[in-house]
């Protein structure tokens, strides 16, 4: 079976599961089901974006939590001012998602542009350390923002509003998040197979060859980095609306590490693998936290095992196989 078909098949199965799961869970008396699924979908959006640059570009960003937090904070802070009746540079503010979300995404794109430009001057270990360091800077800046709650974070009085969709309704919110995930995965898939994507992937496989074909690496890598930042920012926006709460914890190195772990667990360079990774990781987290508050004692060694033995991840072998003779 060709790779295209495997991708389509896996994607459809996943989509069917994610559509049906809340309905099935609603038949039981488990109230945590829909929130859990919502978290999985939001995380999936972030890690699919991360997979775009790690799996296809070998750009191991250890700082993607900075975009996750920035997306959330922009939305929460603007909402805060609007509700306080403040004006923001003479603008009375809004609660409309159609305005706030693009603004937040723009902020993520700008941060991605600056951090990416600096970090992409290097490769490998330096790239990892630099992305981590800038994320930590964002974390410290968020902590220092006493006006917006500092360490404690900032509550959102309500979710953003959207015409004809009730974001306050958990069902509507879940299916909106799922729709965004589907659109984003299709967009990433388009990019990967595009003329841009061909060059971007060539840079990972042999930078020397690509350069000697006339390719200037930086603009390609930077473009992908910014796209990835925007996707992760969108996840942050959804998270802020889901939790109705943003804290500097969204920007911690541990969050960035979690994203890395999920991508690897699911399968690098597959786009769909990380979604499965998110489901397993978040699900496991849920189970372990119920079992013991010291769940890291289990999760830690699991990460070690994933690193040591999980070469292809859960779906890597299947999704990357079946192509070429």
């Amino acid at each position: 079976m060709s790779r295209f078909n495997r991708f389509t098949l896996t994607g459809l199965v996943m989509l069917a599961l994610l559509i049906i799961a809340p309905v099935v869970i609603a038949q039981t008396d488990w109230s945590g089901g829909l929130p859990l699924l919502t978290r999985i979908v939001i995380y999936a959006l972030a890690v699919v974006s991360l997979d775009l640059i790690i799996g296809y570009g070998a750009l191991v960003s250890f700082g993607h939590a900075m975009f996750f937090s920035l997306g959330g904070y922009v939305v929460a802070v603007l909402l805060h001012h609007t509700n306080m009746g403040d004006t923001i540079f003479g603008w009375e503010g809004t609660n409309s998602a159609l305005l706030l979300w693009p603004l937040a995404l723009l902020a993520c794109a700008l941060l991605g542009l600056v951090v990416g430009y600096l970090a992409l001057k290097t490769r490998g270990v330096q790239f990892i350390m630099i992305t981590l360091a800038f994320a930590q800077m964002v974390y410290f800046v968020l902590v220092s923002l006493q006006y917006y709650g500092g360490d404690d974070g900032l509550m959102m009085d309500m979710r953003n509003t959207m015409p004809s969709i009730q974001l306050d309704d958990p069902w509507a919110f879940y299916y909106l998040a799922l729709t965004l995930l589907v659109v984003w995965v299709l967009f990433c898939r388009l990019i990967v197979n595009s003329r841009f994507g061909l060059v971007f992937q060539a840079l990972r496989q042999s930078e020397r060859r690509a350069v000697n074909l006339g390719v200037n690496p930086l603009p390609f890598r930077l473009t992908a980095f910014v796209i990835s930042a925007v996707g992760t920012g969108l996840a942050g926006i959804l998270w802020a609306n889901y939790a109705e709460f943003v804290t500097p914890d969204m920007a911690t190195w541990a969050k960035s590490g979690e994203f890395l772990a999920i991508v690897t667990l699911g399968g690098l360079g597959t786009l769909l693998g990380p979604i499965a990774g998110a489901a397993v990781f978040i699900g496991l987290e849920q189970i372990l936290t119920i079992w013991t508050e010291h769940w890291m004692i289990v999760m830690g060694p699991m990460l070690v095992l994933i690193a040591l033995f999980g070469q292809q991840g859960m779906l890597g072998r299947y999704l990357k196989g079946g192509r070429h003779d």
């Binding site: 191991v60 590490g257 890395l260 772990a261 690897t264 004692i297 830690g300 994933i306 040591l308």
Partner: peptide
């Protein structure tokens, strides 16, 4: 191995 796996494994060790 790729640096990604070194990051993951040592991250797991930190948490543990």
């Amino acid at each position: 191995r790729d640096h990604l796996y070194q990051v993951l494994a040592t991250l797991g060790l930190i948490l543990f």
